[in-house]
Computed example of a mutant assay.
Amino acid sequence: PTKNTNKNLTPKQIFIDNHLQDIPNAVWISATGKTYETYKQKIQLPATEWENPLLEYCSERLQNLYFTDRRDGKKRRSIALTSSRGCPLACSFCAIVAADKDGPKWRAVDATTLVNWIVEAHKQYSFEHIYMMDANFFVRKDRVLEFSEKLYKLFGGEITWSSSSTVGYLLKLRTELPKLVTQGLRLVEMGIESGSQTQLDYMNKRVTVKNNIDAIRALQINGIDVGLDFIMFYHDQQKREIIENLSFLLNSGMTEHESFDHYFNIMMIYPGTPVRDNLERKMGIKFNLIDLPNSRQLIENQEVKEIYDAYIDYFAKPLLNSLENAISINIEKISQSTSPREIAHLSLLNIYLRHMPFKILWGLCQRTGERTVIFTGKEFQHTPLS
């Protein structure tokens, strides 16, 4: 219970259920577990009326946020904010598609307002890096360039930044990347999603595998760290497409990427997405609005199911933590060692360990029956891994 202005106890849940119905576009679950939706209304708060999200920066987790800047060799105290809503694209698996179906697909504060937000926050907080948490920060080239230039001029390069982008928008800024790096860009989280063209088409990504490789190479050439958003598995998949995903990671130079998440990600079936709608029609069922189906149970192809089950149950669950710990221990030893021989040995060992998820999954794809055509493996065997 909560107290009202008359200091009489009022059951909190009754209060919520009675008043949420007056709020447009609200969805909630009552105390009895029933799902409610209020009336729909096409309303969007104009970006010009958005409040500075950094002025109420009270989260303990965010107050202890840091960014490891490899280019400058320092650990930077950081803040995180979002300067835009939505995404102009319509990827078939993405929940943003459902969220934006009744309003503009993308809206953002202008570059001047964004920089002013940061200046205002810098008077209250001590930070040297900004995480731009937008779903797709690189949508407008002119906005990105204006933001970067103004931030650099105001802080003299003392504040760096990272952001997100999809492949097409990143490639439009490819020639500007050297300047952006000089002005403080350190990392771009890339919505690559797949290295298989049939998967990319299925996801409505509107890019090619070559585009994906070109985008990663552009970041690598300019010394910009890559945050990799990638879906290795999905429910409607052939073994060939897993192999194509692995070949892409090899060809794009991502086999030694720090995080292993992309090796194990499986597509989530979010409400309101075309992928979910298609699956419901195919199965002749309707998922509950508040349910997120278990994607593993929806894998159709038997070979893919065998590969996924073996990879998750006999490698990821029992061994992944140990693998990551071993790499971390080696990195710590390298940082403390004065022996060139030991440093070289541990560095090569870590390369071997980082390739392990790739090699295990590649091997599983070669050994699960002969029901589909598979690669010869020559691409993997003849490619230098060091």
Rank of each mutant, 00 (worst) to 15 (best):
N204R: 14
V207N: 09
V207P: 04
T208L: 08
V209S: 12
N211Q: 13
N211W: 07
I213P: 00
A215E: 09
Q220E: 06
Q220G: 06
Q220R: 12
Q220C: 05
I224C: 10
I224K: 07
D225I: 05
V226C: 06
G227F: 02
D229W: 13
F230R: 03
F230T: 01
F230M: 09
I231E: 05
I231W: 12
I231C: 04
F233E: 06
Y234D: 13
D236Q: 12
Q237G: 01
Q238E: 14
I242R: 01
I242C: 08
I243L: 09
E244F: 10
N245K: 02
L246F: 11
L246P: 03
S247N: 11
F248L: 00
F248M: 07
L249T: 05
L250Y: 00
L250V: 03
N251L: 13
N251Q: 15
S252W: 05
S252Y: 13
G253I: 10
G253W: 15
M254I: 02
M254L: 10
E256T: 12
H257I: 01
H257N: 10
E258Y: 13
S259L: 13
S259F: 14
F260G: 01
H262Q: 00
Y263V: 01
F264T: 07
F264W: 15
N265A: 10
M268S: 15
I269G: 03
P271S: 03
G272H: 01
G272I: 02
T273D: 10
T273E: 08
P274R: 12
P274S: 13
V275I: 11
V275W: 03
R276T: 01
R276W: 01
